[in-house]
Amino acid sequence: MTGSVPRVPRWSDVPVLRRVEPFVVAILTAVAVAALLPAGGGVATGLSWGTTVGVGVLFFVYGARMAPAEAVAGLRNWRLQGAVAATTYVVFPLLGLLLSLLVGRFLDDGLVAGVLFLAALPSTVQSCVVFTAMAHGNVPGAVVSATVSNLAGIGVTPLLAALLLGSAGAGPDGGAVGRILLQLLVPFLVGLLAGRWIGPWVRAHRGPLTLLDRAVIVGVVYAAFSRGVRQGVWREVGVGEVAVVLGCAAVFLAAVLALAWWVPRLWGAGRADRVTIAFCGSNKSLATGLPMATVLFDPHVVGLVALPVILYHPLQITVCSVLATRLGRAPLLQG
Rank of each mutant, 00 (worst) to 15 (best):
V8N: 09
W11A: 13
E21A: 04
P22T: 08
A26E: 08
A26F: 07
L28H: 14
A34W: 01
L37G: 01
P38Y: 03
A39V: 11
G42H: 15
A44K: 09
T45W: 12
L47Q: 14
W49Q: 13
W49G: 15
W49A: 14
G50Q: 06
V57Q: 07
F59M: 08
F60H: 01
V61R: 11
A64D: 10
A64W: 01
M66T: 13
A67N: 12
G74L: 05
R76W: 08
V84R: 11
Y89A: 05
V90I: 15
G96R: 07
S100E: 09
V103I: 12
R105A: 14
G110H: 04
G114D: 04
L116Y: 07
L118V: 06
L118T: 07
A120R: 03
A120N: 04
V125E: 02
S127R: 01
S127V: 07
V129L: 05
A135I: 02
V139I: 13
A146F: 07
A146S: 14
A152H: 06
V156R: 09
V156H: 06
T157C: 07
L159Q: 00
L160A: 06
L160F: 05
L163T: 13
G166N: 03
G169Q: 05
P172M: 06
D173S: 05
A176P: 00
A176H: 10
R179H: 01
L182S: 05
L182K: 02
V186D: 03
F188D: 01
L189F: 02
L189G: 02
L189I: 10
L189C: 05
G191T: 11
G195Q: 08
P200V: 11
A215N: 04
I217Q: 12
V218H: 11
V221K: 04
V221H: 06
S226Q: 09
R230Q: 14
R230V: 10
V237K: 02
A243G: 02
V245Q: 00
A249C: 13
A250Q: 00
F252V: 01
F252C: 00
L253V: 02
A254Y: 00
A258E: 03
A258H: 00
V263C: 05
P264L: 13
L266C: 07
W267H: 13
G268Y: 02
V275Y: 03
I277E: 01
G281P: 13
N283Q: 14
L286H: 11
M292N: 04
F297H: 11
P299E: 08
V301P: 09
L304Q: 15
Y312W: 13
Y312M: 15
H313V: 04
I317V: 14
I317G: 01
S321H: 09
V322L: 10
L323R: 07
A324L: 12
R326C: 08
G328P: 05
L332F: 09
L332Q: 15
Q334P: 01
